[in-house]
Amino acid sequence: MRLTGQGLECVRGGRSIFSGLDFEVPAGQALAVTGVNGAGKSSLLRIVAGLLPAAGGAMTLEGGEAELTLPEQAHYLGHRDALKPSLTVLENLDFWRNFLGGEAIDGTASLEAVGLGHAVHLPSAFLSAGQRRRLSIARLIAVNRPVWLLDEPTSALDTAGQAMVADLMGAHLRSGGIILAATHGPLGIAAKELRIGGDA
């Protein structure tokens, strides 16, 4: 399996953010997307996830499921945690498991893996910022998808949480997965770097 971007261009508000961007990430590897604020790191992830249209270029996932689009084979973890505050931790995760479809893993086991096993029946409105991030990360392992698109995955997490994310990413890569992560700091795993230019 291989994720490839060729000649990608992003235009926002009539302004070219980046153009002619090429990269490839084979199975079992991670690519860290770096650059100053406003360089287009988040925009690149959103293009790959199908949430923004590319102004030019093409994305391909070689070796994936032929009947599925790239976004249907990818998890996107953005800045916002996308949780319903009135639902419990487990209900939030079950919502995403049903919405995303595909091969699902037991929700309680996924919550245990991110350190939220004690909070399954707690309304998410009572979670701290770090706990909300952990709940969002649980989606990555609750539904099996080969491509992870992670935007600052360790934001709001303490040292233990950062180590947990690194462990999960490492396990995903060892199983043949692909990671494309926008980051300002180290991911805690081996990763090649794609630096995007731009103004702060």
Rank of each mutant, 00 (worst) to 15 (best):
E103W: 04
T108I: 07
L87I: 09
L87G: 10
L45F: 03
V25Y: 05
G14R: 09
G28D: 09
G35T: 10
V89Q: 05
K41M: 08
F18N: 02
G102Y: 06
S43A: 15
G20K: 08
L87E: 01
L68M: 14
L116W: 12
E24C: 12
A82S: 13
G35N: 12
N92G: 07
H75I: 07
L68H: 10
A54E: 08
L51C: 06
A39K: 03
G64Q: 05
G20A: 03
G101M: 06
R15A: 14
L93R: 07
G57M: 02
G63E: 08
G102D: 05
L100Q: 02
G102N: 04
E91T: 06
Y76M: 01
A27N: 03
S42F: 01
L51V: 05
A113M: 13
W96Y: 13
G57R: 07
A104C: 12
A109C: 05
G101L: 06
G50W: 04
E65S: 13
T69D: 09
L31Q: 07
L21G: 11
E112N: 14
H79M: 09
T60M: 09
L45R: 03
P26N: 06
S110P: 04
Y76G: 00
T34N: 06
E24M: 10
S86P: 00
A39F: 08
H118K: 12
S43Q: 01
T60Q: 15
G64H: 03
E62W: 04
E112L: 12
P26S: 11
G20Q: 11
V11L: 05
E62A: 15
I47M: 15
E67K: 11
E103P: 03
G107W: 07
K41F: 13
P85L: 07
L111C: 07
D81G: 08
V33M: 01
D81C: 09
Q29P: 00
S42G: 09
Q29N: 11
T88E: 01
R46F: 01
N37H: 07
G102T: 11
H79F: 04
G20F: 08
E62H: 14
Y76S: 00
L70F: 04
T69P: 00
N37W: 13
I17M: 10
A113E: 14
L116K: 11
I105V: 15
L111P: 03
P71V: 00
S110L: 02
A32N: 07
A49P: 03
Q29L: 10
G14Y: 01
S19A: 15
A82Q: 13
L83R: 05
V11R: 15
W96F: 15
A66D: 14
M59E: 00
G78V: 06
G56Q: 04
Q73E: 01
A30Q: 01
T108G: 12
L61V: 11
D106K: 09
V11F: 08
G35S: 08
L93Y: 02
H118A: 13
K84P: 00
L116R: 01
G28N: 10
A74G: 01
L90M: 10
R80C: 04
L70E: 02
L31W: 08
G64T: 08
L90G: 00
